[in-house]
């Protein structure tokens, strides 16, 4: 087995991992600000995939063009969900929140099942099999495009939180809720914006993921769990951590899928999760307890 070949697997894994990272970013942002664990995250991901799929099917547009639509659609869903449902459950015990979002997830998954049926659906792109040759390496064009866009969106989100007024206000709510209320921030609205942005990230991630895999309704639980693994490994609430976790999981899946059975690839992800939980419970890039 040539080193080029192994490097090729590593590159493919890293690129897929960047898209995973974008998905996990949304989960991490929502938890970081509101301490709400979004158990309906995989459902939102699949929602983004279906939006992109529908637009591709009806208008024949490239899913990359449809990415803003998927993101916007999910932003609206996330905003409304937080504002009119989850907001009433911010203060309740974790297990009640968990059940609430689980019920939401159940409704989403089965709505997909009803509307689209159980079959896997994918897009056929004219450039699906194009690739770039860099020296001895072969890099898939689709994977590279998806990864670059994912990293760009992640950077934009980081900029939003660091530079804009709304972004700073959201961070203020996360740091000191009482203080934020005292200075007159509209916490309900800001929470809803955060949930919306988290959902938009995962929607965009879904549109990109559709370039790489086919979509079917039962992907939902897999993506929810994958999202959790990634953010815990990277550090819940840490945005760079989500990207790092995504890349690590992308790599472990690529290698496990190649050297062992493809069906065993998520075993490594769960194994990694157990190790991180025990030895670095705050994640690789998480802040102290």
């Amino acid at each position: 087995m040539s080193p080029e070949f192994i490097l090729g697997i590593a590159i493919a894994g890293t690129l897929t991992g960047a898209v995973y990272g974008l998905m996990a970013l949304g989960l991490s942002a929502i938890f970081g600000v509101m301490r709400v664990v979004n158990f309906a995250h995989g459902e939102m991901m699949v929602g983004g995939m279906y939006i992109a799929y529908l637009l591709y099917k009806t208008m024949g547009l490239d899913p990359i063009m449809m990415l803003p639509v998927a993101a916007l659609g999910l932003f609206v869903v996330g905003y409304l969900l937080q504002r009119y449902l989850v907001n009433y459950f911010i203060e309740v015990p974790e297990h009640v929140q968990f059940l609430l979002l689980l019920a939401v997830a159940m409704v989403f998954t089965n709505a997909f099942l009803m509307i689209f049926g159980p079959d896997a659906r994918g897009v056929q792109l004219p450039y699906a099999f194009d690739s770039y040759n860099v020296g001895p390496l072969v890099i898939d064009k689709v994977r590279l495009i998806a990864a670059v866009i994912a990293v760009l969106i992640a950077a934009l989100l980081g900029l939003f939180f660091a530079k804009t007024r709304t972004g700073k206000a959201i961070r203020a709510c996360a740091d000191n809720l009482t203080g934020a209320q005292v200075v007159g921030l509209d916490v309900k609205h800001l929470y809803a914006v955060t949930f919306g942005l988290g959902a938009a990230c995962v929607g965009a991630g879904g549109a990109l993921m559709l370039l790489l895999v086919d979509v079917h309704p039962h992907l939902t639980t897999d993506y929810t769990l994958l999202g959790f693994i990634i953010v815990i490994i990277g550090g819940l609430g840490s945005l760079p951590g989500a990207l790092l976790g995504g890349v690590l999981i992308g790599l472990s899946e690529a290698f496990a899928g190649f050297f062992l059975a493809a069906s065993m690839k998520s075993m490594f992800a769960f194994g990694l999760l157990i190790l991180v939980l025990l030895f670095r419970p705050n994640g690789l890039l998480g802040r102290g307890a």
Partner: peptide, 8 residues
């Protein structure tokens, strides 16, 4: 799907 939605 309807059954599960109702359940949810």
């Amino acid at each position: 799907g309807v059954k599960q939605i109702g359940y949810g």
